[in-house]
Design a protein around this nucleic acid. Structure first.
Lengths: 77, 77
DNA sequence: CTGTAGACTTCCGTCGACC
DNA sequence: TGGTCGACGGAAGTCTACA
């Protein structure tokens, strides 16, 4: 498992929990919808600023988002 | 304060605490020394994979690194 | 040991369109 | 609503070299 794939899974989960569509998240985060789609599918790797932006839109701390990613990455080892 | 500037400050602090030179960190993380230099000065924004790579070299969890960044960012608000 | 410059390759992130 | 395609500008990250 790659970090970007796990990040995509976590992002999708958090987005669903916030009851947002990709389009809705794209709108409030001011990121492109196709980019959100690629992030969720692990086709793109976000920069630190993108991580912070998405986190605030999902009402979660960046460190908590990363923590979930790191826990999931560790579980694959 | 921008996120990348704060990240650079935290990165430098952690590197010094690990008693590593930029060159040493570049070597073990397999990143370019000039890139490490620019990261520390906030001239570049790391992607999530770079954050994970640097964290493991600094013996810290990615989420803890981000946590310090987010705390410092918040302190400027 | 660190900063920076330039030239380079790869990829982030945008945009419009279609399924 | 989400996946994907192609084109694009700009930025991530490498490498050499010099102060």
């Amino acid at each position: 498992m790659t970090i970007e794939k796990v990040f995509g899974e976590v992002l999708k989960k958090k987005r669903i929990e916030s009851e947002l569509s990709q389009e809705g998240l794209a709108y409030i985060s001011d990121l492109d919808r196709s980019f959100i789609s690629m992030l969720e599918r692990g086709k793109r790797k976000p920069t630190i600023t993108t991580i912070f932006r998405l986190s605030s839109c999902l009402n979660i701390k960046p460190s908590e988002l990363i923590k979930e990613v790191e826990a999931k990455v560790d579980s694959y080892k």
